[in-house]
Write a protein that binds this DNA or RNA. Sequence first.
RNA 1: GGGCGGGUAGCUCAGUUGGCCAGAGCAUUCGCCUUACACGCGAAGGGUCCAGGGUUCGAGUCCCUGCCCGCCCA
Length: 1157
Amino acid sequence: MTDHAPNPSSSTDPKPGAAAPSNELPKAYKPSEHEDAIRARWESTGAFHADPSRVLSGDAEPFAIVIPPPNVTAALHLGHALNNTLQDVLVRAHRMKGYETLWMPGTDHAGIATQSVVEKRVLKEEGKRRADFKGEEGRREFVGKIQAFKDEYERVITDQLKRMGCSCDWERQRFTMDEVCAAAVREAFFQLFKDGLIYRGKRLVNWDPVSQTALSDDEVEMEEVDGHFFYLRYPLVHRSENSEDAKDAQEVTWDELASRGYPGADGHDGDENAWVTVATTRPETYLGDTAVAINPRDPRAAALRGLCVQLPLVGRVIPIVEDDYVVMPAADPDAEGVDAKAKYATGFLKVTPAHDPNDYEIGRRHGLPVINVMAPDASISDLHGWTDIGDARGFVGLSREEARRKVVAAFKERGLLEAQKPYRHSVGHSYRSHAAIEPYLSDQWYVKVTDPRLAGAALDAMVHEQRGNREAQLDPVKRGAEREAGDASLRFYPERYAKTYETWHENIRDWCISRQLWWGHRIPIFYLHQRTAQSVDPGVVHSWEQRNLESEATLDVLGRAAARACGLEDDVWFQRDLVETTAPMSGPQGVQRTYFGVACSRSRRGDLFLGHIHRLARMSSSSTEDQRVTRETFVREYGNDSLRPSMALAHRISHVSQDPDVLDTWFSSALWPMSTMGWPDATAAANATGIADFPQMLDAFNPTSVLCTAREIITLWVSRMVMFNRYLRPEGTKARRHEGTKTEKHEGGKGSGPVPFRDVFIHSVIQDGEGRKMSKSLGNGVDPLDIIESHGSDAMRFTLVQMTTSTQDVRMPVERDPTTGKNTSPKFDQGRNFCNKLWNAARFAVSILEKAGADDASRSVKPSDLSLVDRWMLSRVATTVADVDAALGEYQYAPYATAMYDLLWRDFCDWYLEAIKPTVASSAPQRAVLRATLDAILRMLHPIAPYITEAIHERVRSLLPTAAIAGLDLTGDAKDAARRASAKWAGMLCREVWPRADASLRDERAEQSFERLRQLVTACREVRSQHQVSPKRRVKLHVDAELAKEIGASGGLVETLAGLGEVSTATPAAAAVTFSFDSKECFLSDLADQVDAGAERERLTKQITDLDKSITALEGRLGNPGYADRAPKHLVDQTRDQLMKAKADREAARANLARLS
RNA sequence: GGGCGGGUAGCUCAGUUGGCCAGAGCAUUCGCCUUACACGCGAAGGGUCCAGGGUUCGAGUCCCUGCCCGCCCA
């Protein structure tokens, strides 16, 4: 914890800039001296607060992102830093571009993860387990501890996000379990339940025996495990027709089998009891076997028809059934390419419906009993459905692993273990506890996502060109029906992830949403338990009630009548029974109904009502006085007319109890884009939070613009948000925008509503230098706060953005910082260096602009007023604006960062600033270009590096304004200017307008001309370097008249950058070095007091060798007969030109070499 | 088993419809405290673009086969 607390000293540092407006900027950028103060200004001016009314009035287009809420389980890691930096880049850029921009922050309660962390903590600190907290009271106490933990981490996480510079609308921050979000969960559950899309099912779930909860399919990780195949012999018997007693089972001998035509039976002792051999990796589950299956095409099947086997020790007699699922044994198990299953198969499959999903299906097909032989902790138990223990009592109480060993030993002892082969296979493990998953039969709640209104709607949401399924793409009926609905409006970046999304929905299974946990949204289902005959106290039932009691009425009828009488028909939904989409199983595990019916409560009002019904139902066991009080309370609450129907209901039940389980965390996450904006009752949300414009949020900002997340979340989260949004939000959302607002109607689009977001951007996963995931256990993780402290937030952000290419993983070499002992990466040095470069460039520019004083003209500077290097610089700015806009539009982060790097470092610093040094002091137009360029760079860089750019902007802004540059718009729309000028955040860079560059600023000729001269400079520098000319020495360049004229027209550019004292058209004196430029022979003289002939000879020789190589290559290309004919003419011409120049240069070099010797 | 991504300089990575002598940063070497920046400036060396085949005048780029690494799903 302390690791992540903010540095307390940093927040008390004096604010820079503000303290001393006139002194010059410090030499190096020190992030810690600026970040806190700048962040405080952003926050205090409400710069990130989104105003939905501007969207609804049509004054601004919306741009909205909901944060993928971080789990409150732990502090943020580098992956979060990446995820949130990328969001912030989009958010800041769009805000500057004039969109009304919302970034909704919040955190996720992360049920199982948080609960298990707190469980461990409580065990360690108090020595208590969850089971030690008894009853509803104990549960509340324990949940309180988790709540406290959540509060602690929510603060840590929020602080981390803020320090990263995230420009969230912090006033709107939500938590998945807060009042506003809880209302959404309630409403969603209620609607789905009422519509029959939530049901309770008894079936095999993924059971985590350590956490003792069910898991969804997505929470199970497959891991390779070294195990064995065990071959167990089950003795064959006849079904005992008249006796239930297994002891009466009559053995089947090999002779009898032979007479039935069983292949290979005569190879055995004819009098001996025959057997079949099953192969299994989990012998301990044999205790729950209810059949042996054989493939009907198996030649042995006919002979076995009607026979049974008897389970050793248990004594249970179970049938042999025929099922296509059974894999036939391979004829030659050792042959190449034999399927692994066939290789190990015997053709007989033990069927344990309670402990294997495939067996469960076989069981359903053949009507087999389901015998659960395990307790919730996965130990062998006779208390959870297993009754015919027989002689197998010795296994009861053992763990899965112990039981396996003992079962194998028992079979071996009796000569029934035929073989044991090592076998490596994948086994499901809990993503949280890492325990092996036990397929476990239990009652759980499911969302019927297989319904077309859910999964189907999620598929239809995809844009057509990203759908792989051709029929869906071309279906004309579908296309006609789209219109305003959310169909065909969801797009993935990078595109390939659309496939992941699509295939997942095509193979989707119903979603298990109940978790046997305490931390989460309690399932809003109440069981109304049936009153047994003896529990009815005849004295309680008054005569009028008896008369009026509709004895035949079912619970739903009674319940609805009661609710209506109390004015709560919208708050509670009664149902006779739970909806089962699958036929109930036969056998001892059939669903035991102990309740009379269920009620789903939509609201706290509903909960209270059911509590009252509960008390009415319990009245018979209380004193007369208590009964009177209970009735009076009820009447006071709901009025006189409410009592009769409610009593009619209450008299049929003994008590009401809420389902103890909570919902899967993803259920609330799935509602995030809606719940954070106040769905379903934004007025209530406004009242609860004091945020007055809550009722405008949904219409203004949902659908959001883009969701940014990592790919592992596509199925867990993205899909479910799409399904829920489309089901629960009404159609025609777009049309309602600009039309004012209303609290959302309860009726949703049922699958044709809008999408929660238009784009889905999936970013890379950061790995360490060896391509491993960063993890605590490996100790290879990098803590974002460590980087912020050592390098600054902007440096971290720049590095992360620069790394974000469209590949699925990026590597970051991790090193230990020798001074702090903390993990870091040299990658971050790049970001730090970049920031420092920017700082110093700005420092230099500021020093020049400060000195200029008030004489700078205010009239607009036109390109024609400017020198080559200025026109070139502006052209580069214009090009970069276009490049950056294009990159941002496609979520191309690395190209964005690279474009900014090149513009700032290569163009602005290396060339422009160097070139203008001699002239800028005397040229007002040049100063205008300098300031505009720096300003444009700051703005374009702000989304990546918000702190430093804001810090610099503060200074640049305060300098006397220099003239505007025609074609470079840095002021924005005039009509918006007044509003912006009067805002609290006025003048801050984070709210400045995004640069817009007119096409006229792009100057192809200036760029070409500059490029030529740059090459000339480089050629001069090369010569200087090779001749070890001191950087201070001014040398003399000799060129022909034409080139001299070009140099002259460039305004001293070449002289400055190449360190020339003079440019001459005269032939050089004796001590000169020659080089070729553009096929022209040029000379540099005055390099030193004497030219080093050896160095020169070396240089020329190397040059000739290089040219030889080029000439050979170029001649080869031109010699190719197809080339001249088929290649584009301009390319061929270009090649000829190159060859000519290369030959000329070689001639010149050769001549010079000859002259030297 | 199915799907996806990657294999380019010592390291981390760009390289968008096939077309200048394949680029950047870091690292290395040489020279510079040139008054914005040594977290810097100037210059240099360094690549069988995983392997093999194909299409093409031309392939890092497109097609096929194979190898290796990683991820997701079953």
